Structure formats: structure tokens, C-alpha cells
Computed example of a mutant assay.
Amino acid sequence: MRVLVAEDHRVLARTIATGLRRQAMAVDVAGSGDEAERMCLLTDYDVLILDRDLPVMTGDEVCRRLRERTDPPRILMLTAAAEISDKVYGLTALGADDYLAKPFDFAELVARVRALSRRTPTSPPAALRHEGITLDRARREASADGRPLELTPKEFAVLHLLMEARGAAVPHDELVRTVWDENLDPRTSAVRAVVSRLRRKLGDPGIITADKGQGYRLCD
């Protein structure tokens, strides 16, 4: 899942981004409204966490402008404006998909972001299966031949992408872009390390192959 955090308070933005990355989300950060809009035009984000009080262009204006797009990201308003009238305005007049007032509990933010990412007409089935491997997106659980797998958030996210591809190769760059974010050096060995651990946990070194020039894929 790819998320954009539009927040001009640098410490808060960094805290949110770090926490979401630990949940295996790819997170970018924008410090102003115009930057957030520009990044959304260049990248297909699943969820935009949007502060209403942004410099240059307000979050309200960003929300309105993005709603004019054919396929905008899901927008979670994150703001100190906590009155019921503020929430109603954000959800109705501005067209936000969700609204969370500051201060907030981080676990609730994560839950809301995940819920928004599932709220799409083309959302795939909760459970994916491939050659004895089962992955349940809703419960965030995975098993191999009935044996529960203890996966880290990054391992779960990589396995999820590979299973969604149904045997097709997933390019290295796509794994980096979706599971990590723009701050990760694409030449890093992070992807290779996660795939190596996945092979061990799945109990079959050959279940995930690296096709030179193509990426990684699950074997039949």
C-alpha cells in the first residue's frame, strides 16, 4: 500500500511516516498543499493523509481539487478541527473519505488507513491462495500447507504482492515502490533479504524465483 502524508509539522509527519513504514506501508511526505497535489498527480497513492491547515494551498483546497480527478486517492483528513460541524463539512462539502481529529491514537490511524485502502470496487478477495500457501488480507495472517507463518510486516507485504501476481513476475522496482518508498535506494539488498527470509519460512527454497531482468515470482 502506498500512502502520502501531507503534514507541515515536520516532527508529526516524520512520526506518522515512520510508524506506517513499520506496518509495511510505502510512505511519502509532503509539507505543503501544492506539493501534496503535485505528488498525487505524479503517483497513484492508495491513501492520502491530509492536514487541513497546510501552507501555500490549504488541505481543503487540495481535497476539492483531487475530487475533480477520475481516480483520486482515498482521503483521510487529519486535523485539530474536532467539532462535529468540522467533521460534517470535511466529509460532505469537501468530499473526504474519513476524518480523524488530533490528538489521535496511532493504532486507530493505522486501522482507518487500512480500511480506506480496502474501500475500492476492484478490491481483491480477502484470502489469496497459491500452491498450499494461503494469505488472508483482512486478518493479516498467512499459512503454508496449514502451518501458520510468523511474518514481519515487510515479509507479509512482499508475499501479498507475489500472490496477487498469480505466478507472474513482480519487478524489483515495483516491490521497492509499493512495500518501501521513494527514500529506499533501489540498489539496496533489502528486497533480496526479505525474499530470502520468506523462502525459509515457506519451507521451500525454490518457491520464489528471481527471473533476471524480470523480478520475483511464485512458482507452481
Rank of each mutant, 00 (worst) to 15 (best):
L42C: 07
D34F: 08
L159T: 12
G206R: 14
D53S: 12
P103V: 00
Q214G: 01
D28N: 07
R67K: 14
R22G: 15
L48Y: 04
L12H: 08
Q23S: 11
R74W: 08
C63I: 04
R22S: 09
D220E: 10
F156M: 04
E37R: 13
S189C: 03
L149T: 01
S123D: 14
P125C: 01
I84N: 12
D46W: 15
A30L: 00
R139G: 06
T18M: 08
R217C: 00
K154I: 09
R22L: 09
D181S: 00
G59M: 07
I75A: 04
A24P: 01
H160D: 12
P153Q: 08
P72T: 03
A144L: 09
T70H: 13
P125I: 01
L202P: 00
P73K: 06
D98L: 03
V170M: 07
V29H: 13
D97H: 06
A81F: 15
F104D: 03
C63Q: 02
V5D: 01
D86M: 03
V62S: 02
V191Q: 00
A138L: 13
T70E: 15
E182Y: 12
L41F: 10
M25V: 08
V47L: 00
V195T: 02
V110D: 06
L116I: 01
D98G: 14
F104R: 09
R197P: 02
R118L: 05
R137A: 05
R129E: 13
L151E: 05
W180C: 01
D8G: 09
E7L: 03
T43E: 10
L184S: 03
D97Q: 04
L116T: 04
K154Y: 12
H9Y: 11
K87S: 13
A165Y: 05
T58C: 13
D53C: 13
C40P: 05
E141N: 08
C219G: 14
L116G: 01
R118G: 10
A142S: 04
Y89L: 04
E7Y: 00
G146A: 02
T134C: 09
E155I: 10
V191A: 05
R217K: 08
E61Y: 15
T209Q: 12
D46L: 14
F156L: 03
I207L: 07
V88G: 02
C63T: 03
R10W: 11
L159C: 00
I49R: 15
V113K: 09
E68T: 11
E174W: 10
G146K: 05
M25K: 05
T43A: 04
Y45T: 11
G213I: 01
G203D: 10
S123E: 12
P72H: 14
L109T: 03
R69L: 14
R200C: 06
C40M: 07
A13V: 07
A96I: 11
G213W: 06
G215M: 05
V47I: 02
P153T: 04
Q214A: 11
S85H: 13
L4T: 09
T120F: 10
L54M: 15
V29R: 15
R199I: 03
G132S: 09
S85T: 14
